[in-house]
């Protein structure tokens, strides 16, 4: 189901949580909303789900204007930032809640819950209570609960926010696979650019309640519209008065460089190295080199070098 957001605005007192946001979310896509803390990501999801009413603008799902439709009738699966499990219900009851509300027969609920628990790999925890689950398990339970109602749209608010790096990477992978299996239009909120780049097929970058840029992740990475997007979507530095990606720069001999400078530090991270250069114009930049490049160039601190963009060379 496609979602289109038209000039959505939401203010809390004097805070402009969401300001004139318009976006088209393609049917079956996995869209990541990316932005720093407080940029209005959660508020945007609440507006889409109907948990908050926009001051202005409208939400259209599959051609139907749902701005005035109560969230309980929108058929939207929502996974909350902190999972919001029903603490006094076990996993089975949690997952079956939406079906019970929809007055499905106990037999049907039972079968569907079993199926979903298998999907999220929680069969062995069916009778456990949320307090007895790990963070990752709670997250998967919340996902199963949201999926149980066969939602038209799935909204995930920082689904991996509170988890450690390993579980995070695992779940991220798993969500991507799940999405390929069931193809429900999904909007995922995150403030982690790597996560967004890895999972999403469409990105919406927000800042202070506004959409700064949206589109294909790779296109955004390579052609960021503003310095903010550039800095937000990956490592960045400045070179010759412009924002640049450190891996787009290279070190050459003094005469070949667009600018020259003196190496002030070399940090080796194993598979790559960060070389900081103080340029002749007084600014400083850093260049990302592969391990092999570093080894073959015989660099050391205080050496005079030239710096240029890699794409300035013609092959």
């Amino acid at each position: 189901m496609s979602i289109s957001l038209k000039h959505l605005t939401k203010h809390y007192g004097s805070t402009n949580a969401v300001e004139d946001v318009s976006a088209e979310i393609v049917h079956g896509s996995l869209t990541a909303v990316l932005g720093p803390s407080g940029s209005g990501k959660s508020t945007l999801l609440k507006l889409i789900s109907g948990l908050e009413r926009p001051d202005q603008g409208s939400v259209v799902i599959d051609g139907e204007d749902v701005t005035d439709v109560d969230p309980r009738h929108r058929d939207i699966g929502f996974c909350f930032q902190h999972y919001a499990p029903f603490r006094h219900m076990n996993v089975t009851k949690n997952v079956g809640f939406g079906l019970k509300v929809r007055k499905r027969s106990p037999k049907e609920i039972d079968a569907r819950v079993k199926e979903l628990l298998a999907l999220v790999k929680l069969e062995h925890k069916a009778k456990h209570y949320p307090a007895q689950l790990s963070g990752g398990e709670r997250q998967r339970m919340a996902l199963a609960r949201a999926l149980a109602i066969e939602p038209r749209v799935l909204l995930l608010d920082e689904p991996f926010g509170a988890l450690d790096a390993v579980v995070r990477a695992e779940l991220r992978h798993w969500v991507k696979e799940l999405h390929q299996q069931i193809h429900v239009t999904t909007v995922l909120v995150t403030h982690d650019q790597q996560e967004a780049m890895e999972v999403a097929d469409q990105l919406i970058v927000m800042r202070s309640g506004r959409v700064v840029q949206s589109g294909d992740p790779l296109a955004l990475y390579e052609r960021p519209a503003t310095d903010f997007v550039h800095e937000f979507l990956g490592p960045s530095t400045t070179f010759a008065g412009e924002v640049a990606r450190p891996h787009d720069l290279e070190l050459v001999s003094v005469y070949q460089g667009t600018m020259k400078g003196r190496i002030t530090s070399i940090v080796s991270l194993g598979f790559e190295a960060q070389v900081t250069v103080e340029l002749s114009d007084g600014t400083s930049t850093w260049v990302q080199l592969s391990r092999n490049e570093l080894a073959s160039m015989g660099l050391r601190v205080a050496l005079l070098v030239g710096v240029r963009r890699r794409d300035d060379v013609e092959f």
């Binding site: 969230p71 309980r72 929502f78 919001a84 939406g98």
Partner: peptide, 9 residues
């Protein structure tokens, strides 16, 4: 939890 229940119908 109340909001979650609401989105579930």
């Amino acid at each position: 939890q109340e909001q979650a229940a609401r989105t579930l119908g």
